[in-house]
């Protein structure tokens, strides 16, 4: 009898615990949603295999595909989380991607126009110099946006809308009819195989997510971002250099986009400057929002954005497995974003 009563209590406690977590822990509902997606995806993949080993092989392959396909945008979404946490937005990430991507290719071009080739650099030293320069270029592009927002007082939406048009247009102009190719060895950066798997993009994503998670939790910069986004006046009156923080956040955004650009160039060896990165800003914002980041600023989670990116990635994969027509897929993404915000509303209301 006694055990039964206590078992009952335990069940009660579980529900209470669940309800408590649901209403107080910010990433709880997002985590549950992710688990449900994973279970669904596993079920849809089916168990129609000869052995467990074969099933596991297929499951792992599927997962590696999901992670690798979303690594670049996942990295961008991490920066977007910081941007949104300051109360801003960055619409220019797609255009920054092609600008930095184009820069990468111009530096490395195997033809006569390769800038590094001209000074006699090639092979690994050239790759390292390229990457450093491209990351610096990304940071500068982001910081330029940051300057117009802080010094020029241009609202982030407008500043980045303008930058979005400028960066892509200028890139396309300079890159038209240019036939640039990067050295095959450069592709190793993304395509280097560990065992039988191309894991490099995933590893980059994990490392960056881990660093930014630490920054957001423990470092002055990360905590000051929250202060700025939550109450800019109070932050300034507490000695936070609001402009410096914003400038660095947009710079970091550009830096991360440059990483995504290097990954993309080294995955396929080229970039379509008119279409690459189109809609990337919306996907990054969607991932951050599904992960619990508030558009009003002050509230955001690096880990949540990783969850959000995975939820969207798994969903795309599911739609693929289900054979949903391509044009309808965006609709599902839209529903997920709205549903996520509705769930989080409930969280805060109770």
């Amino acid at each position: 009898m006694e055990t039964k009563v206590s078992g009952n209590e335990n069940r009660m406690n579980f529900f209470e615990w669940f309800k408590h977590k649901w209403t107080t822990a910010p990433l709880f509902s997002t985590g549950i949603a992710l688990i449900i997606m994973i279970i669904l995806q596993t079920l849809v993949l089916g168990f129609d295999y000869d052995s467990f080993g074969e099933w596991f092989q297929a499951w792992t392959n599927n997962w590696i595909n999901i992670l690798r396909n979303n690594a670049g945008i996942g990295i961008v979404a991490l920066g977007m989380t910081f941007v949104i946490m300051t109360g801003g937005i960055d619409l220019a990430v797609g255009s920054t991607l092609v600008a930095t991507g184009a820069f990468t290719m111009v530096l490395l071009d195997t033809g006569t126009r390769g800038l590094l080739g001209m000074v006699g650099l090639s092979g690994a030293p050239a790759f390292i110099v390229t990457i450093l320069l491209v990351l610096l270029f990304g940071y500068i592009l982001g910081a330029l946006i940051g300057v117009s927002i802080t010094k020029g007082n241009v609202p982030p939406f407008i500043a980045t809308l303008g930058a979005m048009m400028i960066f892509r247009s200028v890139t396309q102009h300079f890159m038209q009819e240019q036939n640039t190719t990067v050295p095959m060895d450069f592709l190793q950066i993304a395509s280097f195989k560990i065992g039988d798997y191309m894991l490099m993009p995933i590893i980059y994503w994990i490392i960056i997510a881990a660093i930014l998670y630490y920054v957001s939790k423990r470092m002055t910069f990360g905590r000051q971002i929250i202060a700025v986004g939550s109450n800019e006046r109070a932050a300034r009156l507490s000695g936070v250099n609001v402009n410096k923080i914003k400038l660095r956040v947009y710079g970091l955004m550009g830096f991360l986009v440059a990483i995504a650009a290097v990954i993309q160039v080294s995955r396929i060896g080229s970039m379509d400057f008119s279409n690459a990165g189109r809609g990337m800003e919306m996907d990054a914002i969607a991932a951050a929002i599904v992960g619990g980041t508030s558009m009003a600023g002050g509230r955001g989670f690096i880990l949540g954005t990783v969850y959000g990116m995975l939820i969207i990635g798994v969903m795309n994969n599911l739609l693929n497995l289900f054979g949903v027509p391509p044009f309808l897929r965006e609709a599902f993404k839209g529903m997920i974003v709205i549903a996520a915000v509705l769930l989080q509303r409930k969280e805060r209301a109770s």
Partner: peptide, 29 residues
């Protein structure tokens, strides 16, 4: 409420924000 309280942060963070730069090593609080 408008000028001092940062509602997305907890008590200890609200009580320490002004000294974050001073009491940190290499940017780590």
């Amino acid at each position: 409420k408008e000028n001092a309280i940062i509602k997305d942060m907890d008590i200890i963070e609200n009580a320490s924000i002004a000294t974050w730069p001073k009491f940190s090593r290499k940017g780590i609080i």
